[in-house]
């Protein structure tokens, strides 16, 4: 697969040669290891192609980080994984994305249960303007996962504990979620996402609005959550990708350039573009 080792690239413009469309590295996993499989995915915003033929697997209990310069399509790709792009009218997704061998773009499949299975944490902490308790309880309630107050209490407590927020907020569960600090808000959002017990959690630059201490807490949390969930994280911070993920995918102008074990990508990138990006020559 990776016969074309180092693609020739112009000095200044880091464009991609037309024939250079094949992904370097190991985007695909063995069937029993993968949670989500994506094959030949194209995404268009109106006429503009945002994702150009990407095939990539996300393994069970792994953290996959997606890096790349702004506008490279990594967030767009992430949002395909729980069909959040459906909300954008001009957006069209082609290709094959499966969760546990089930086509998530199947006409018959409803997005509501899909999003219960594939949760999402956004760039900017976006707790609902409700109490901390209601923020966590919202998902289980709308999906009918809880029947009684005691059930709900339990879900709220375990979710907050798993998100490492319980000790900080247990005395003020009725306080508005929006009154927490930025880092706490983001952990609240993570707790909210895991309250419905999803299989996959998508994180779109979850720490870009946070200070280093809050970031460290979230990263620690991501590492713990890996035991139970599959996590795909988009990040601008290469250090973060290196710290939290097992595999890293490098995107460039809508194409998936290179995928591999994180330590390999950061120490011995195979593709010239990847090397240029991680050594800080652009991006």
């Amino acid at each position: 697969m990776s016969t074309k080792d180092k693609a020739t690239v112009g000095e200044d413009q880091h464009g991609i040669e037309s024939e250079d469309t094949e992904t370097v590295g190991k985007p695909l996993l063995a069937a029993e290891k993968s949670r989500m499989t994506c094959r030949n995915v194209f995404v268009y915003y109106g006429e503009k192609m945002a994702i150009d033929n990407i095939s990539l697997d996300i393994g069970k209990n792994e953290v996959l980080s997606m890096i790349g310069p702004s506008g490279c399509g990594k967030s767009t790709f992430l949002r395909c994984l729980n069909r959040m792009n459906d909300t954008i009218d001009i957006c069209r997704v082609d290709g094959d994305i499966k969760l546990d061998n089930q086509d998530i773009y199947d006409q018959k499949l409803d997005v509501v249960p899909l999003r219960a299975r594939v949760g999402m944490v956004f760039q900017k902490p976006n707790p609902f303007p409700k109490s901390i308790y209601d923020n966590i309880a919202y998902g289980p309630r709308i999906h009918g996962m809880v029947d009684s107050k005691t059930d709900t209490d339990e879900v709220v407590e375990t979710s907050l504990k798993r998100a490492g927020l319980w000790e900080e907020v247990k005395d003020r569960l009725d306080a508005p979620g929006t009154g927490l600090s930025g880092g706490q808000q983001q952990r609240l959002c993570i707790a909210r996402a895991i309250a419905v017990n999803p299989e996959v959690i998508l994180m779109d630059e979850p720490c870009s609005a946070l200070d280093p201490i809050a970031t460290a807490k979230i990263e620690e949390l991501i590492d713990e959550l890996r035991e139970e969930f599959t996590i795909a994280i988009v990040t601008h911070s290469m250090q973060q990708a290196a710290r939290v993920s097992q595999r890293t995918a490098y995107f460039h102008m809508g194409k998936l350039i290179e995928v591999g074990k994180t330590n390999k990508i950061f120490t011995m990138p195979s593709h010239q573009l990847t090397e240029d990006y991680i050594t800080g020559r652009f991006g």
């Binding site: 909300t87 509501v112 956004f122 976006n126 919202y138 999906h143």
Partner: peptide
Amino acid sequence: PPSIREAALGMGA
């Protein structure tokens, strides 16, 4: 704000 809509949709509402 669209972030609230996204949060709700992302939760599977």
